[in-house]
Design a protein around this nucleic acid. Structure first.
Lengths: 234, 234
DNA sequence: ACCTGAACACCGTTCAAGT
DNA sequence: ACCTGAACACCGTTCAAGT
């Protein structure tokens, strides 16, 4: 890191910034200091400019995060759809989705909260997934909801990523032998599978969802049964 | 709202605050102004005290949020476990969980991020759920992970709550007839079921997960199959 | 012990002044 | 057009001074 050359007051002869460079540095800062650590001052410091210089290339901090979301969607693995069996293509997509969210858990709120309207490139990703369902012969009415179910599960799985692996350890276990035994049994399975707890939970949930969805839409009962889980008191 | 009587400088004759009152007002503020809107200044203003007075009853803003999490766990419906069929008890619990998160979506990060170590009362809730699995005869090694899968899905479902119902509407649909048809078919199902899109997705996911988990652990193959969804390239 | 008021070290955003 | 520096209206937290 060289000491940035002091810049005089007016417009420099060569342009110093562009949106791309700002985005790159944004991701680095988020990785290093988290979303809360992403401040315009820190960003400016890393880029060697003044804070207000950023506003010539990015409308606001929120606009910056929309760019983050766009780049994220392009990083997901949709290569399986149409090329390998759907179940494997979905697993590949889901794991890449989770993996990318886990690599930067601080991005989860960004991905979830940025409206799709501000991220047109993200919908290209969705097209690939839906097309995968269609090619595999799933009824058209089932595909959007099925994808949403998977995405919902993935978001949830990404949420507890910051927590340590022993977050499953109960607090008041000494007061409940059953709870203690259950956690011990789960820990044993984790050991046997040579996996991390959260990975085992994710793979089990993924397997259950894919199996469940298939049974739902293969049974020919469709929404009649898919809606069976409606809230009792709704 | 009466104009608060001006308070003199020293210790008042009667105590003005306590942790319970602060928690009540905290929830009100979060409901009105969101988590970002929860500032110590706003909180103090609503309570009619100075900002620094809060620190006599609460260690920090984070400590305040731990209290929020504790109260949340006590509001979940675990009444079904041990009393009605497990599948229905789980559905009741899951819907109450989701419903409470949806009522205050801003609470999601609080619930997820506050370490269980700081919320001992939350683990009482988990005990009830695990006991429900046990009574229904599920293998001990399956219960913790099964509950986690459900919780993961619930968290994910709560995340997109702030987004409007038409968030499922694609952006570039005009470029993809398939995507347009799929969304239309889903919308039709929503109309037929007289449900909101996100409710339909949740009930479908819940149904799929319960069916899938049952098939997983009823097949006698247990983790061997539950682990089948492991990341291909892991 | 419990409250007030002032202070400290931060934020995101705006804008006149410079080239 | 594009950068700087100062300003504005906010944060959470601390602490001496008061009763």
């Amino acid at each position: 890191m060289t000491i940035p050359a002091a810049r005089r007051r007016g417009r420099p002869r060569e342009r110093v910034l562009d949106a791309e460079a700002i985005l790159d540095t944004t991701l680095t800062v988020i990785r290093d200091a988290g979303l809360k650590g992403l401040t315009m001052r820190v960003l400016a410091l890393r880029l060697g400019v003044s804070v207000s210089a950023l506003y010539h290339h990015v409308p606001s901090r929120a606009g910056l995060l929309a760019n983050v979301q766009e780049r994220f969607a392009e990083g997901l693995d949709v290569s399986g759809f149409g090329n390998i069996p759907l179940r494997e293509a979905l697993a590949r997509w889901a794991w890449s989705y989770l993996h990318q969210l886990r690599r930067q858990p601080e991005l989860v709120p960004v991905i979830v909260e940025v409206p799709l309207a501000q991220a047109p490139r993200s919908s290209l990703m969705y097209q690939r997934v839906i097309a995968g369902f269609a090619v595999a012969g799933w009824p058209e009415e089932s595909t959007v909801a099925s994808m949403s179910v998977l995405e919902t599960f993935i978001f949830g799985a990404a949420l507890d990523s910051p927590s340590p692996d022993d977050a499953y350890e109960p607090q008041g276990a000494e007061h409940s032998p059953l709870l203690a035994r259950s956690y011990a049994a789960f820990s044993q399975a984790v050991e046997d599978q040579e996996a991390r707890p959260r990975d085992l939970v994710f793979s089990m949930g993924l397997e259950a969802i894919l199996t469940g969805l298939h049974s739902l839409w293969g049974s020919g009962r469709g929404w009649a049964r898919a809606g069976a889980g409606m809230r009792p008191d709704a």
